[in-house]
């Protein structure tokens, strides 16, 4: 008798375990939903974890106002189809309240502004656990992240003072005012995510598939022409066949030239590609330790 699971089933089982643990240990958990493939898979796993009941926590979208319209369309359809409860935290509101300040200059992005917006939403809704779709393979600083990551009352992450995490026994105890970030898909790689999406037939925003779009190059990233970016004099937008490997803000999400218009082709592309998916994100390039700095401040 061979009782074995393949790697996707084992990862699925681990993530479902973590999601259930969150529902059991916390009073007001929330699932951070960006509309990207990782949060889509995380939400899909949450549906599996509690089936046939509904997912017992809401989704929170931190909306910069600079999303691709395709992302919002996809989000609203998914919420509608699955009966999810969606909370939207607008970066614009945080700016209006004086909690966040718009960046200036050609490379201005609202990426950093998501931090105060998120923290404010956590406080206002008294969320005690925020689940994110972060994966440890994405970036060096994430490689040390726990499944259950404790944040102090200032929402700070202290990489030197993390609780040891043993076996699958998760310690979610905390004092009032503190909260946890939880990363149910910590152990998945980009490839695992794609294989799983293919195997389970999970719908995705069209942005991930090859399409035609006006794009231009800036600091080594291929950016979509859009209302939130002003072209510099030497920059020219041209119609190209591209797709996105990650989905974030229109201001900083880099595209790749690609003909991959199906999941099978994307997997083939991911298998042969020679740069990490974050390689296209200009926010990470600012410095090598950029992600680590943002994490300490409470980035997802």
């Amino acid at each position: 008798m061979n009782y074995s699971l393949n790697h996707l089933k084992e990862l699925e089982s681990e993530s479902i375990f973590v999601l259930r643990e969150v529902a059991a240990q916390f009073e007001h958990p929330v699932l951070l939903f960006s509309g990207g493939k990782d949060s889509i898979v995380m939400y899909y796993l949450a549906r599996k974890a509690f089936w046939p009941a509904k997912v017992p926590f809401p989704l929170l979208h931190v909306d910069t106002g600079h999303n691709f319209p395709e992302t919002i369309e996809f989000r609203d359809k998914l919420v509608n189809d699955t009966g999810a409860r969606l909370i939207i935290a607008h970066v614009q509101d945080a700016i209006d309240k004086g909690l966040a300040f718009e960046e200036k200059g050609v490379n201005a992005s609202r990426n950093m502004l998501q931090i105060p917006t998120l923290l404010n939403a956590i406080e206002e809704n008294k969320f005690d656990a925020a689940m994110g779709g972060g994966r440890r393979d994405e970036e060096k600083a994430r490689a040390k992240e726990r499944f259950f990551s404790h944040r102090d009352e200032f929402s700070q992450w202290d990489p030197k003072n993390q609780r040891p995490e043993l076996w699958n026994v998760f310690n979610g105890r905390k004092n009032i005012g503190e909260h946890f970030r939880v990363f149910p898909i910590s152990n998945w790689t980009e490839m695992d995510i794609w294989q799983y999406i293919l195997h389970e037939n999970i719908p995705l925003p069209s942005l991930y598939f090859s399409h035609q779009r006006n794009v231009f190059e800036r600091d080594g990233s291929i950016l979509a022409e859009n209302d939130f970016l002003t072209l510099k004099e030497n920059e020219n937008a041209e119609l190209k066949t591209i797709r996105f490997r990650t989905i974030g803000d229109m201001t900083c999400t880099g595209a790749v030239f690609s003909e991959a218009d199906s999941l099978e082709k994307i997997i083939e592309e991911v298998a042969t590609t020679r740069t990490t998916e974050r390689g296209g994100r200009s926010d990470d390039k600012r410095s090598e330790a950029a992600m680590e700095d943002r994490k300490k401040e409470g980035y997802f």
Binding site: K140, A141, A143, P159, E292
Partner: peptide, 21 residues
Amino acid sequence: DGLRAEREQGITIDVAYRYFA
């Protein structure tokens, strides 16, 4: 090698997870 503090000290100080297939 992971976090900045470690890079500065030139040592690894915690558990880090890596992936390959």
